[in-house]
Design a binder for these strands. Structure first.
Lengths: 141, 141
DNA sequence: TGTTGCCTTGACGTCGGCGTCAGGCCGTAG
DNA sequence: CTACGGCCTGACGCCGACGTCAAGGCAACA
């Protein structure tokens, strides 16, 4: 199969596949015309790459999985190096989720505080210490 | 105050401040030598930018807050446009956290499955359907 | 014989938020 | 006089994963 067909089968583009090759992730045979040719094993490798990328893995992080497939394993995560990447990614995900959760709480508290201040201003005091500043400097009306 | 001092006070760099200016976020007066001069209000604006960036806001997202401060408000989130950004960011954070949580579970399940397969292979069958493929192609030993 | 379609290589563009370097001005301290 | 520090502008570099364009080759089909 040629590069266009592989791209279609794997749900990606020819540009991405050439890029993988340039990174040493997807070596290609050539036919008489100099065109790249691939087989089912290459398709499995590309699918492995796409799956991991959907999980947020960087290209380099997919390398152990691809090499594991090329070594003949049925699954890309049958090799120790792949498991190491899994574990590292789990730690990354946990710390990212924790950080994002903390930020979420801070933003939520800021929003609640700002809304409270706005409501109090609207309800009670129509100018406690001078004229109100005008929001939206460059308003379009 | 000049740009170096402002950068030190705000915990950033002169390069970042000039970048903000180039984006129209931080207009600067000039002294006789053509040097940028700033006051306390500029400092407050820069601090607002940094705080939001620590929360993961992009520069453009800080703009309503900065303009709100420049309009004379004591807080950058006293204006409706800032609240809109808060709410949008909360939604983004929620969906990101949800996505990451789902990915985390998938990766954890993949890891568990792969470890189980490895253990079963090590314990039971030392070659059920042919020779084992060799992991780590380019091993360094 | 042209036209389409797929392929090739090479190289520059994208996005964000700056870092870093080059070349030069201004004021001050030794 | 010279060195140094801080400032100026302008421009290229960086990271990741490609997108996009240019210029050309080769095969099939009308």
């Amino acid at each position: 199969m040629r590069i266009g067909e592989l791209a279609a089968e794997a749900g990606t583009t020819t540009r991405a596949l050439r890029y993988y090759e340039s990174r040493g992730l997807l070596p290609a045979r050539r036919d008489g015309n100099g065109h790249r040719t691939y087989d089912e094993r290459d398709l499995a490798q590309v699918r492995q790459i796409r799956t991991l990328q959907d999980f947020g893995f960087g290209l380099e992080e997919t390398r152990p999985f691809v090499e594991c497939l090329r070594a003949g394993h049925a699954e890309g995560d049958s090799c120790p190096a792949s498991l190491v990447v899994y574990r590292r990614k789990l730690e990354e995900l946990d710390s990212m989720i924790e950080r994002l959760g903390a930020v979420r709480e801070k933003v939520a508290r800021q929003l609640a505080r700002a809304e409270r201040a706005r409501d109090e201003l609207a309800a009670g005091a129509p100018a406690p210490g001078g004229p109100e500043p005008v929001c939206e400097l460059g308003g379009r009306g």
